[in-house]
Amino acid sequence: MTLAPETTDLKVQLRLDSEDSENEVWFTVCDLNLLVPGRGVAALLPDGRQVALFRDRSGSLYGIDNRDPFSGAAVLSRGLTGTHQGRPFVASPLLKQRFDLVSGECLDDASVRVATYEVRAG
């Protein structure tokens, strides 16, 4: 048994309050090791919203709304991720539009964006 904190003990947490609020509210989703680098998972929030969570090769975590605005299906967590001009993105598995994982902007249609969430490992 080691005493040093292991990454496997870490949890993926999602910030639920608005960013300028005084009291931070973090919602624990799952063990960090359930996130395979380059792949996403979906999480269900207490209010019924769905979040797509991703982890990239460097260990950074991202969260965006799971619903694909082009089809209405809750599938963005199942898309393929990548880097485009240094920015991480996920491509919808349905019609392949790409969404910036940091800003939520659709890279193929600037008028469309999805909600983003602050994610941490803690």
Partner: peptide, 18 residues
Amino acid sequence: AALQDSNDHFLANLQKNG
């Protein structure tokens, strides 16, 4: 696992409603 297209990842064909 991380490389496969979405359909291969779930060994099934994704349809329009998920």
